[in-house]
Write a protein that binds this DNA or RNA. Structure first.
Length: 343
DNA sequence: GCCA
DNA sequence: CAGTACG
DNA sequence: TGGCCGATACTG
C-alpha cells in the first residue's frame, strides 16, 4: 500500500499538521497490518484517516476544537480524534510510540514496496532476523531466502526489482506518460486479434504524475493467449511480473515503467474501464453504494446480488445511471466524495 | 479502528 | 489454499 | 453489534 500523500498536499503550506498526522496514521496502519489479520480492519481505518488528512484542504487544527468536532469528519471517530488532539498538544501519539517499541519498525517501511506484505515481512523477521532494508538486501545477496517456503524464484526476482526501483521513485510527469502510452497503444493495435484497446488508470484521470500505465483490451477469449504472446513480442518488456489469460503485468523500457493490461469481452468494456481507471477510493465507494442497493460491481459488470443477473457493464455511463449517480468524468474520480447521487 |  | 496485487 | 470492495487475478 502506497502512502497517499501526493504533490498537491506537499505544496500547500497550511497543512503541516495534516501531513505529519497523515504519515503517522499511515505508519500505524502498517503496524497493525503487520500484527496480523485480526487487526486488518483497524489498519484500514487508520489508512482511511491518513488519506482523508492528505486530501484535506484546510489544516486539521481548524477542526480540532473538540473530539466531537473532529468526529464529524468522515472516517474520524472518537479514538482517532483523541489521538489527533493529543498530537496537536504534545507533538506525539503515545499509542504510536508504543507500537514502534514493540515491532521491528524499520522493517515496516518495506510494506510500501510491491511484493512485501505483512506475512512476508513477518517471515523475514522471524525466520531470518531481518530488521530493516539493509538486512534484507544482504540476505538477498547471500541467497538466504531461497530455503523459505513460499519464496520461489519469481517472487525473489520481483522483490529484488521492487527494492531497486523503490529508491528511484519513478512516477512520470503526465506528458511523458501520455507519450509512452501512445507508443504502446500503437504497437498493440498492430496485433490483428485486438478488437479495441484504451488507456485507463491515472493516465486517463490525467493525474499530474503517473506511476504505471494501465490498459483495457477487448478480445474474445480464444484469441487471448496468442494476443498476450504477441504483446510480449512487440513490446519486448524487460520483465514480466504476471501473465494469465485475462491479465498481463510487465516492466517496460529504460524507465522501468510498469504496464498492466486487462483483457475483457466487448460487453465488459465499460466495467473494465471503470475499474481500471479508478481511483481506488472511487471504486470502493461505487462498490459500496452498489452493495447498499442490492447490486455488486466488479470489472465484469454490475450484477444483481440475489439473482446473479448481469445488469450493466457495456458503458460507464449506464453503470453510473443504474446506480442512480451522476456521471463522473475520469479527471474527477479522485476520492469517495467525488461520487454524488442524482437529485 | 469507523459506521449504520 | 493463503498471500499479494490491481483499481 | 456486525460488516468493512471484489463470485477480482496470479503465484507458490
Amino acid at each position: 500500500m502506497v502512502h497517499p500523500i501526493n504533490k498537491q498536499s506537499l505544496s500547500s503550506g497550511k497543512t503541516t499538521h495534516n501531513r505529519a498526522l497523515s504519515l503517522i496514521f499511515h505508519k500505524m496502519a502498517e503496524c497493525y497490518r503487520y500484527m496480523g489479520t485480526e487487526e486488518r480492519f483497524r489498519a484500514t481505518a487508520y489508512e482511511n484517516v491518513s488519506r482523508v488528512l492528505a486530501n484535506m484542504k484546510e489544516d486539521i487544527s481548524e477542526h480540532a476544537g473538540s473530539v466531537e468536532e473532529l468526529d464529524e469528519i468522515g472516517g474520524i471517530g472518537e479514538s482517532i480524534a483523541e489521538k489527533i488532539i493529543e498530537y496537536l498538544q504534545t507533538g506525539k501519539i503515545k499509542t504510536f510510540e508504543e507500537l514502534k517499541k514493540k515491532l521491528p519498525f524499520d522493517l515496516l517501511e518495506l510494506m510500501d514496496i510491491s511484493g512485501f506484505g505483512p506475512s512476508t515481512l513477518r517471515t523475514l523477521h522471524e525466520k531470518l532476523g531481518i530488521n530493516n532494508r539493509d538486512d534484507l538486501v544482504k540476505a538477498l545477496q547471500e541467497n538466504k531466502l531461497n530455503k523459505l517456503k513460499g519464496f520461489g524464484e519469481r517472487k525473489l526476482t520481483n522483490m529484488k526489482r521492487a527494492l531497486k526501483m523503490e529508491k528511484s521513485n519513478n512516477r512520470m510527469p503526465l506528458q511523458l506518460a501520455e507519450e509512452e502510452g501512445a507508443r504502446l497503444l500503437r504497437l498493440i493495435k498492430s496485433i490483428k486479434a485486438v478488437e479495441k484497446i484504451a488507456l485507463a488508470g491515472s493516465l486517463r484521470r490525467k493525474k499530474e504524475t503517473v506511476g504505471d500505465i494501465d490498459m483495457v483490451l477487448v478480445a474474445v477469449p480464444r484469441n487471448r493467449k496468442r494476443i498476450v504472446e504477441e504483446i510480449i513480442r512487440v513490446i519486448q518488456p524487460q520483465k514480466i511480473l504476471a501473465r494469465g489469460t485475462t491479465k498481463l503485468s510487465m516492466i517496460v523500457g529504460d524507465r522501468e515503467t510498469q504496464v498492466d493490461i486487462r483483457l475483457v469481452h466487448d460487453y465488459e468494456f465499460g466495467s473494465a474501464m471503470l475499474y481500471f481507471t479508478g481511483s481506488k477510493e472511487h471504486n470502493i465507494r461505487l462498490r459500496t453504494i452498489a452493495k447498499e442497493r442490492g447490486m455488486k460491481i466488479n470489472e465484469y459488470g454490475i450484477f444483481d446480488v440475489k439473482t446473479g443477473e448481469r445488469l450493466a457493464g457495456e458503458t460507464e455511463e449506464e453503470m453510473y445511471e443504474l446506480l442512480g449517480l451522476n456521471y463522473v468524468s475520469p479527471e474527477k474520480r479522485i476520492d469517495a466524495e467525488s461520487v454524488e447521487t442524482k437529485d
